[in-house]
């Protein structure tokens, strides 16, 4: 090492020591993400990047880097986690390709003294923290809402997500529990929309001719606009469609509201949950006592907050909130 370099690094250390007060200022955090191929994940990555950049600039942490695997494979993500351990990250924030297949790699990370915080796609390994979403409650809430709006009940169409994925099973379970509770409703059809507008549109267009009159549609997010298009193309009256916070859905809702007073509810998980995971990891590194199981609230948009949500959501994206350190502390406190 040359003299000038030594001087430079010494000055750098002095600068960090002088400016930053948090105990985590030397810590490095990495995001291990399994998939980037939809607007929700893109918004998630952007939120993580902006939160991380700000935190690094403020001297809260030394690094906050995002890595995404190209093939959405558990094996590939396990290798990625092992690389992160070798690179000496202090914490790994994880959106996992599988709840169980990464447990070995996660255990290795824990054994190496790395804090692992999983969110959205959580892992079951006990040494990791889990920021989970109560997806079943989301499904139940949809039916509860329909019951308040349609007290007489009627036929429902269920749009499911991607077959074989844990989230799809959970939301659907919640919806069916809700229907069991509100017996005036009857699910007369169920299709898989893969959380994509075009797939949902195609599936709904295919099943509609065989369905009786539909009063409500329960969805999983990212499929409401396509469903509405399919009803329109079939010249059927638009039922009450529960939406999933995508900007095109919100815009369609606002147009319908202005045209004929359409009223509904939109709920989903904000992609900003990545920023919540970031702050939880920071708190764990800071030595806070954090429960392993945390729950993140849904982002709900109602008739009253529609205009506000539409104004703050970038065109073609999904409604989002960026969680702050205070939000994370609140979530941690409520889990104690």
């Amino acid at each position: 090492m040359t003299n000038s370099m030594m001087l430079f690094s010494a000055a750098g250390l002095a600068l960090i020591a002088g400016l930053a007060e948090a105990d985590t200022s030397g810590k490095r955090i990495a995001l291990s993400n399994n998939y980037a191929g939809n607007s929700w994940r893109q918004a998630m990555l952007e939120t993580f990047e902006s939160t991380g950049k700000q935190a690094v600039a403020d001297g809260v942490v030394a690094a906050a880097d995002a890595y995404t695997t190209s093939e959405n494979q558990a094996t590939e993500q396990a290798a990625q986690i092992q690389n992160m351990i070798l690179q000496g990250y202090d914490a790994i924030i994880l959106n996992a390709a599988s709840p169980t297949a990464l447990n070995g790699a996660v255990k290795e990370a824990c054994d190496a003294g790395v804090t692992v915080v999983s969110f959205d796609g959580i892992v079951t390994e006990p040494c990791a923290w889990r920021i989970a979403v109560d997806f079943a409650a989301m499904g139940r809430e949809e039916v509860d809402y329909l019951a308040t709006r349609l007290p007489d009940g009627g036929n429902l169409l269920e749009i499911r997500g991607l077959a074989g994925v844990f989230v799809d099973d959970e939301i659907s379970k919640g919806i069916h529990e809700g229907v069991a509770e509100h017996s005036q409703f009857d699910i007369v059809g169920s299709v898989h929309g893969d959380w994509a507008q075009d797939v949902a549109q195609k599936a709904v267009a295919g099943i509609l001719p065989s369905l009786p009159d539909i009063v409500g549609v329960v969805t999983q997010g990212g499929d409401g606009y396509g469903t509405a298009q399919a009803f329109r193309a079939a010249d059927r009256p638009t039922p009450l469609i529960v939406l999933g916070n995508r900007q095109d859905e919100l815009k369609w809702w606002a147009e319908q509201r202005d045209a004929n007073g359409y009223e509904t509810l939109s709920l989903s998980i904000a992609p900003g949950v990545a920023s919540l995971a970031f702050w939880v990891a920071q708190q764990v590194l800071d030595g806070e006592d954090v429960a392993k199981e945390l729950t993140v609230p849904f982002l709900k948009i109602t008739q009253d907050t529609l205009d506000e949500a539409l104004a703050t959501t970038p065109e073609g994206s999904v409604a989002n909130v960026t969680y702050s350190l205070e939000d994370a502390q609140q979530v941690i406190a409520s889990a104690r």
């Binding site: 191929g37 607007s39 994509a196 075009d198 797939v199 549109q201 396509g226 298009q229 095109d248 073609g316």
Partner: peptide, 16 residues
């Protein structure tokens, strides 16, 4: 055509 039909291009629109 598909993007025009379904109201916009999505990153996973070609998957199936």
């Amino acid at each position: 055509l598909l993007a025009s039909f379904s109201g916009g291009a999505a990153l996973n629109m070609g998957a199936e």
